[in-house]
Design a protein around this nucleic acid. Structure first.
Lengths: 167, 167
DNA sequence: TATTGTTATACTCTATAACTATA
DNA sequence: TATAGTTATAGAGTATAACAATA
């Protein structure tokens, strides 16, 4: 959506913050802005890969989650917790995936309140295709060095633990 | 949106990927997933701070950009390029900010095609208030150590340069 | 009473295409 | 012809509140 800028806008912003009396928080502000921008770039790449397959990222996330489930089925509430999204977002995503024939709703055997979501054969095939495409075109060519990847994983793992993501 | 998980789901996914024949890309996949999740956490914090001020993040970004402009005014097209968003998104954001009285559209002195955006006094005051709140409640308490912040800035700067963000 | 999930509704942001006005 | 910006329209995800069914 445009040519490269002549200078790094985030480095500029950091200097600007320091000049305006925010020296204390200039560096973390810049780091957080860089995370936002990096996420934006990566999301665009992922969406470019998924679009030809008729998937959005959030729907792919749902399919990938189901493909990992040992029994092949997951309660809506568990999907909501694991994907960190609102229950209505799960309902919405499952509605569309079900219409497309990639998942099916089934009743929970013992708890009548619970709806289980299950991959269909089509859904499983599509998930495998999408995963292979993402691995080849995004994760396999991320541009991060191996060392940087490990540093990122440690730093972001510390952050997520501290943020209450896991124990 | 739920209690902490007992285990790190991203570390689990990395192991799972390795077990399913994707060992080559398991680490970058995990790192990218961690970036996505970190962005989600940070965005939620930022929105919590901005919501009481009646601002969304994208509208705050627009105000902050204008507050840095030397002349105090910026063409729509320049805002679109610097914020890396579609021109229609700029039109939308400026429409709402103008209705709220925080920015004004003015004509470019020499190019009749160009619309300039300018902060009002109210807009500048709100921007300063929002910036102070974000610095105090988000950037000043990010949870990243100083060393991690510098590592993040270097790694993500390399990535963004490679992705064509700047020269 | 509490929990699970759905529905209705609304509000973001984003994108495409068609259009006007100006260069 | 090309550029800047707007409009109309559509789609995505997310959220709140009210509700039904079940525990």
């Amino acid at each position: 959506m445009g040519a490269p800028l002549p200078r790094d806008p985030i480095a500029d912003a950091r200097r600007n913050w320091e000049l305006h009396g925010w020296g204390e928080v200039a560096a973390p502000m810049a780091a957080i802005t860089a995370i936002m921008r990096t996420q934006q770039i990566l999301m665009a790449r992922i969406e470019d890969v998924l679009k030809p397959l008729g998937l959005t990222f959030s729907r792919y996330e749902m399919l990938a989650l189901l493909s990992f489930a040992r029994t092949g089925a997951l309660p809506m509430s568990k999907a909501s917790a694991l994907l960190q999204v609102h229950p209505t977002s799960v309902t919405n995503a499952v509605d569309r995936l079900e219409t497309a024939g990639y998942v099916e709703r089934t009743r929970h055997p013992t708890d009548g309140r619970t709806t289980l979501i299950e991959l269909t054969a089509d859904g499983r095939a599509l998930t495998e295709k999408a995963t292979a495409a993402l691995n080849a075109e995004v994760f396999g060519r991320s541009g991060f060095t191996s060392v940087d990847v490990e540093d990122l994983l440690r730093i972001l793992s510390d952050f997520r633990r501290q943020a209450g993501d896991f124990a």
